[in-house]
Design a protein around this nucleic acid. Structure first.
Length: 598
RNA sequence: GGCCCCGUAGUUUAAUGGAUAAAAUAGAAGUUUCCUAAACUUUAGAUAUGGGUUCGAUUCCCGUCGGGGCCA
């Protein structure tokens, strides 16, 4: 497609020269897709040339169109509407491009420019509570962006920085010690991450009760929060942990172990994976070296109380604290450390952080500080900032119990998938295992597609009812299209229909719906490149939907097996297969599987 | 208080400065002796507001109103 576009641009450049003696390089010629209501594939806008050429926009369009038809062998015709020159491409060109695509499918989707080493950090959970809806957007985005970058030819490492230490873990630990009575995930029959989360909630309840009691005794609320015995215990435990107290460490390891088992089960269930795990318990002390480095280089400064700061006012930011007066780290300190660690580990060109947009400022600071330190990797730091997920009731708030639990949500989706599938009764021959597999495939397809079809940068609304919808712009709609084609392929195989390129060489003209599908197929590579450049799985989702829609239109308008011309029949089988493979590939980039039957 | 982001059909989302603003869903009306109707077709419906730049603005700039976030 890129080639064809370049050829047309070249021809236009030539036509401008020949017809108007106007030199205009082909590289600067911008073609846009023609709107559906007009004939043509590419549109060239002539308005910007009226001044230079001293002619009206229609006149220019006509003249260029005539020239193209005469000199450009790919062009079948043209039409001019106001300042828009719509260029129609010959069917033979589409068929030729299609034949090439069939013979080299998959091979050339991946060649888009420079191969880069990219680290994609995502998920990065806290170990004091299970994953929720917000994490799902994060996980799906991170996984998908990593896969898209791979498909675009990059060398990608998926990393997960687990926040496994700090006061919040100690809260769960304290509560478990007090109320746990030796409970384990096995004895309680609760998934490990949920069990630990339960104690985090227990802590909060008991802590609040203590505060209320203190306030009732006349203590100021802020004071009460600090004085509450449970809080003091938690802080004490954090200190013990930092000192390496063996009992504390043992409990911490035991409970974190439960959480990891739980997380791993969820990760497997939702189909995300990681190449490298980092743990904050190992990295939280890193970064102090960077602070020293900055002081030595004179880009950081010390205040009289001993705290270390960086002045980012020139960068349009504020002064930022890097190390407290007592020498302890703040968040940004360890991020400086882990950025360096990742660079030592992988020597990345780009380091992506899939983190919600509430941390936009934080990442601006991180990058600015690394630049001040003149780190070679500073420019490669990218905050893949995504918008938060809202519910119809508003923002998710743990305090108000409106947080949507990831495991529960996935289970509900599976139940709905089962119910809807059973209602239709199309999978009678399935074994129970196959049926189970299908429910899972459909459930994850619906959920992932719903969360990925929106531009990552934008805040989005999660409507539980719409997310499990199977009609319209949804994952299951695309999956259904794939299953339909799979049925076609089975029948074609049974009938022994040939579908290699030699079987349809004689086809010369196309049905309108076939042409639409062919044009779309040719955009596959460019779409992946575009999605990679923008870190936007939504572009892939949109493409997959358009493809499915175009195919379904073809499917209803052109009854494939009623075709009596053997060449055309073969072509339609090949076209269908190509669409199925493209859908499978694109959905795969979103982390979504496609079924053979549904 | 300072800084940042967002306002598009009833609803959820699209639109490198280009055409009559595109889909989905909800609404209305249709399509199955024929490959999966979880599909397809038709229909009605929107750029918060006031200016500016431009041949042309949902897009860029300024003001107003509304929503969200970050920094203490």
């Amino acid at each position: 497609m890129k080639q064809l576009e370049a050829q047309i641009a070249q021809a236009l450049s030539q036509a401008l020269q020949d017809t108007f003696q106007h030199a205009f390089p082909a590289e600067q010629i911008n073609l846009q897709p023609t709107r559906k209501e007009f004939a043509g594939t590419f549109t060239f806008v002539t308005f910007p040339f009226t001044k230079a050429l001293g002619k009206g926009p229609e006149q220019i369009g006509q003249a260029l169109g005539d020239s193209l038809v005469q000199h450009a062998p790919q062009v079948a015709g043209y039409n001019v509407v106001k300042g828009f020159l719509n260029i129609e491409i010959k069917d033979s060109v589409w068929l030729q491009l299609f034949a090439e695509q069939v013979s080299q499918f998959g091979a050339d989707l991946a060649k888009t420019g420079q191969k880069q080493k990219v680290v994609v950090e995502y998920s990065s959970p806290n170990t004091n509570k299970p994953l929720h809806l917000g994490h799902l957007r994060n996980n799906f985005l991170g996984y998908s962006v990593a896969e898209i970058l791979k498909a675009a030819g990059n060398d990608v490492v998926k990393a997960n920085l687990v926040n496994d230490r700090g006061i919040h873990i100690c809260k769960s630990m304290i509560a478990y010690e007090k109320f746990g009575q030796g409970e384990t995930p096995e004895s309680a029959g609760i998934k490990g991450d949920h069990l630990v989360g339960k104690y985090y909630v227990e802590f909060d309840k008991a802590y609040k009760a203590e505060i209320d009691q203190l306030v009732a005794q006349g203590v100021d609320k802020e004071q009460a929060k600090k004085q509450a015995p449970l809080m003091l215990e938690a802080q004490e435990m954090l200190q013990k942990w930092e000192q390496g107290d063996s009992e504390t460490i043992a409990l911490w390891q035991k409970m974190n172990g439960w959480v990891y088992d739980g997380f791993n089960a969820t990760y497997t269930n939702i189909g995300v994976d990681f190449d490298k795990f980092y743990y904050e318990s190992n990295t939280y002390l890193l970064g102090k070296d960077r602070v020293d480095e900055g002081l030595a280089k004179g880009v950081f400064f010390k205040k009289p109380d001993g705290s270390v700061w960086v002045d980012l006012t020139e960068e349009g930011l504020d002064e930022k604290l890097l190390l407290r007066a007592d020498g302890t780290s703040v968040y940004i300190t360890q991020d400086l450390g882990t950025a360096e660690l990742k660079y030592e580990d992988f020597g990345y060109d780009q380091s992506l952080y899939v983190v919600a947009d509430e941390q936009n400022y934080h990442f601006q600071v991180l990058k600015a500080v690394l630049k001040k330190l003149q780190k070679p990797y500073a420019d490669g730091i990218v905050h893949l900032s995504y918008g938060m997920v809202d519910l119809p009731s508003g923002k998710m708030k743990s305090r108000e119990g409106t947080v949507v639990d990831a495991d529960e949500l996935v289970q509900e989706m599976i139940d709905t998938a089962r119910q809807k599938t059973d209602e239709l009764g199309k999978i009678d021959g399935f074994t129970p295992e196959e049926a189970q597999q299908l429910y899972h495939t459909l459930a994850m397809g619906a959920l992932k597609y719903f969360l990925l079809k929106v531009d990552p940068k934008k805040r989005m609304l999660f409507n539980p009812e719409e997310s499990i919808e199977f009609h319209g712009n949804t994952g299951p709609f695309v999956q259904y299209t794939h299953a339909r084609i799979a049925a076609i392929q089975r029948k074609a195989a049974e009938m022994g229909i040939q579908s290699e390129t030699s079987a349809f060489e004689g086809v010369t003209d196309l049905h309108e719906t076939e042409r639409e599908v062919l044009v779309l197929l040719n955009y596959a590579e460019a779409t992946i490149a575009d999605a990679a450049r923008n870190f936007a799985p939504s572009i892939i989702a949109q493409y997959a939907f358009d493809m499915a829609k175009a195919y379904n239109r073809f499917y209803t308008e052109v009854p494939i097996f009623q075709e009596t011309n053997a060449q055309k029949l073969s072509f339609r089988i090949a076209l269908s297969r190509q669409v199925a493979q493209t859908i499978k590939r694109m959905m795969g980039l979103l982390g979504i599987a496609v079924p053979e039957r549904m």
